[in-house]
Design a protein around this nucleic acid. Sequence first.
DNA 1: GCCGTTTTCGGCCCGACTGTTTTCAGTCG
Length: 576
Amino acid sequence: MSKNSLVASVLYELADYSEMEDDQPYRARAYRRAAQTISSLEEDIEDISQKGALREIPGIGEGIEKKVVEILSTGKLQTLEKMKQRNAVDVTSLTKVEGIGPKTVKALYRELKIRNLDDLESAIKGGRLADFRGLGVKDPKLLLEHIQNAKLQSNRVLLEEAEHIADKVRAELGKLRNISRFEIAGSFRRKKETVGDLDVLVETDNPGEVVQNFTKTDEVREVIVAGEYKASVKFAKNFQVDLRVIPSQSWGAALLYFTGSKAHNIELRTRALKMKYHLSEYGLFKEDNETLVAGKSEEEVYKALDMDYIEPELRENRGEIQAAASHKLPKLLNLEDILGDLQMHTIWSDGNESVRDMAEAARKLGYEYIAVTDHVGSLKIANALDAAAIKQQAKEIEKLNEEYEKQGIPFHVIHGAEVNIKADAKLDMPDSVLKEIELVLASIHSGFNDDATKIMKRFTAAFENENVDIIAHPSGRLILERSGYRFNLNEMIEKSLATETVLEIDAYPNRLDLNDQNAYDAIKAGCTLSIDTDSHTSSELVYMKGGVDQARKAWAERRDILNTKSYRDLVKFLES
DNA sequence: GCCGTTTTCGGCCCGACTGTTTTCAGTCG
């Protein structure tokens, strides 16, 4: 785990306290901007600092450079610590409450001596907030709810879950009249691994009516705001959905703006300004602010800015703007390019269906092949196979393949295995057994707390074993649950290249492992990746789409991904 | 605090919604 998020969070905090303390809003904004840039940086901030290249990062000058260096060496910032002592106010928590920003925090402290969420809660319950001016939410019950939300963790959900909520939104919008088109934008459209809310754009001639009717649909549990052109509501589980009405001539500009990311938008607007334009969600305008240059479609706006069209997945300000301006964007991988799935489990180990069931389901998806990769070795919870069972399974698979061949069905089941890399850096199955298996995945399932050196020693054993073809779910993270083990990505990439071992993007919705940043780095370095679903039942094979989305965010092209190869080429690769 | 194809000073992305605001500040995305 890099220090980028630490540095970013300290800078964000500094921005909040600064905004509260002094009247130089642009200083706070500069901190926030730098924090934003650093948190979306692909490179480790510590490496950049060691190279002395911090000042090359846009938004980092003399002052912030010093602060970053201090955070990296001490983990803290003296200026911020002093501010905290001076104010003794928990700005970070208080600003998490909906409707409360730094200015309100300052007023709450000045007038009511409120320092934290508990103070705020008791002030509301004691009715002391009744005469307080300037707080957006007047209803005490609602405010208490917002405080509870602030105390809980974020409401972000997995992309997979967001897809289901999006289906509900689509269903509700389908019932409303007078909507000529709609689109769900935001981080959902960019296919971020987690989604915090849904941004729904609607085109209609009856804005007020559509907004009002939307707030009355069955899924809506609470209305936060509802104006003529915009509504914010909460669905079940506190999940926020924002609806915005967009005029037709601005559809593309609005879609662009609300798809984001914020960093991407700021870069675009800055580029527009340099070209003597002015970009907002209403369109790209000439300097006079009246002449519309482009706005109907995203393509039109990008074109007017002398850029190629940028796919939503790429809009994270990771160099896509420069690439689009110089016509060097990648030709992104598509789901149709995937010809097989190389990790799945059956009833032989901890899966729920037979080899044949999985194969038939994969054929329906149009695949040429699958690899059945049940757990092997001593992993008891996963009902791992021993050497004898592996042999039996090989026979079953051989028979099924013969059957397909006889019937002239061009489909192949590859006999694979997922072998555990043990804490002592040995594989959980002797080489004599592994070499008989056509495709071996190696992965870590224990000793998660080992330090990076030990983890790398274990991975190295796997990389250097000639029977191992793929390192499965390399980081071991579970999104929103655990962060994964400490590994050294650069070393993983080096080893992957040196030993021609493939790194996996495990497409299971709460894994997506490698994550997009790491996968981006690996692809840039020239590694081959595979995208596998890790399915334990045939209905999970469709998780491939999430894996492809993740790979697209990592700028993956068809040639970067192992399972875009035909069966013949794949076998050649495995044998080489 | 950052930054420069107008600039080393004077700008900084932009607009909707809310409150009790009679002309705008704060918050949010």
